[in-house]
């Protein structure tokens, strides 16, 4: 006799800063279809990790994600969260502990923003006061003023604001796991970039285990701790950090997904301070870049200004060195070597 659903759910719910998710040979076969939509998918997501599923439409990435909260029931295989077999739990109760954000957002139009966010706390039987406090806290977290927005209705908000509410609503009961299905896909590029930056900052403080589905490889690079590049039937072509995938794509499929400009994309991931800087002099001080900007920004500045070298300043604004195209190129090479070294270390350990 397995332990009761209650015990298992309490344990999962208590891991508010991320739980380990293990998918073991999970398949989904739809009746009347020969080929499985997802075939023998296995993966481990560590607590607090932000994992991106990237792949073309129809590759099964969304299906795979939706099996974790059982919006879609797996045909075979096992899924555990924090060691608990979720397929043996009550689906509705399980879902209250898994944040869920979808592209169309799906806010409830007849409820105010505050009521939307309070849905899961209410289902969990929180007191009025605790729920109200949590709603205020979450609205502030997603940078919406509670006084202004709590009592508005979804239709009175812009797309970007609605998606912020969607994220707040998913976080309401502080779930250990979040599932996000192209959450920023329907927003315009400027809003999307802003939401992505906010989301990254948010994840730094909340540290949930997040499965994030996207078809936008650049978004995957920007946000993910690790990226799973998926092809037909949700087969994993490569599962690694963004830097490693960009430096060493496993095969042509992954390469085609990265597209043009892999080096530029890698530069965007490397902060200026990791490069070996040249001497600081008044001659380079006309154009400045900060140490925590990316090498891509630095290169951009070099090209735009046409200067042979640009000045690097630290947070206090003091000039600490200079950068040239050569030095950026060297830094890119060093980054690849460093990656290869960690790789062989991991190989030895394994």
């Amino acid at each position: 006799m397995p332990e009761s659903t209650d015990t298992a759910l309490t344990q999962i719910a208590s891991r508010t800063d991320g739980a380990r998710i293990v998918l073991d040979r999970v398949s989904k076969v739809y009746p009347g279809q020969d080929a499985p939509a997802v075939e023998e998918f296995s993966m481990v997501a560590e607590p607090g990790e932000l994992i991106m599923f990237v792949g073309p439409s129809g590759c099964g990435k969304t299906t795979t994600m939706k099996m974790i909260n059982r919006i879609i029931e797996p045909s075979s295989g096992s899924i555990t969260i924090d060691g608990r077999d979720i397929l043996s739990l009550d689906p509705s109760e399980l879902r209250r502990h898994i944040g869920y954000v979808i592209q169309q957002i799906g806010l409830f139009p007849h409820m105010t923003i505050a009521e939307n966010i309070a849905v899961v706390p209410k289902l969990l039987g929180w007191t009025k006061q605790r729920t109200a406090d949590r709603v205020d806290e979450l609205l502030q977290t997603v940078q919406l003023d509670p006084g202004t927005f709590a009592h508005r209705y979804p239709r009175q908000l812009s797309g970007g604001q609605q998606q912020r509410v969607g994220v707040a609503r998913a976080l309401a009961a502080d779930p250990p796991v979040m599932l996000m299905d192209e959450p920023f896909g329907a927003t315009d590029p400027i809003t999307r970039e802003k939401l992505q930056a906010e989301f990254l900052r948010l994840q730094e403080s909340i540290g949930k285990t997040i499965i994030f589905v996207t078809h936008d490889f650049d978004e995957a690079i920007r946000l993910g701790d690790r990226i799973a590049v998926l092809s037909e039937r949700s087969q994993i072509e490569q599962f690694d950090t963004p830097a490693a995938i960009l430096a060493e794509p496993a095969n042509d499929y992954v390469r085609s997904f990265i597209g043009q400009g892999a080096a530029l994309k890698r530069l965007a991931l490397i902060p200026v301070e990791t490069a070996v800087l040249g001497a600081a002099s008044a001659a380079v001080d006309h154009h400045r870049i900060a140490t925590d900007d990316s090498l891509r920004d630095a290169l951009d500045l070099l090209i735009v200004t046409g200067a042979p070298a640009i000045g690097v300043v630290d947070r206090s604004g003091t000039l600490v060195g200079s950068l040239t195209v050569e030095r950026i190129s060297t830094a890119l090479g060093a980054d690849a070597t460093a990656l290869a070294a960690t790789r062989s270390d991991e190989g030895r350990l394994a």
């Binding site: 909260n69 919006i71 509705s92 109760e93 399980l94 879902r95 209250r96 898994i98 869920y100 979808i102 957002i105 799906g106 806010l107 409830f108 849905v119 899961v120 289902l123 969607g166 609503r169 599932l179």
Partner: peptide, 8 residues
């Protein structure tokens, strides 16, 4: 779908 995903 979001109602379902929230555990209703």
């Amino acid at each position: 779908e979001s109602a379902m995903g929230m555990g209703m």
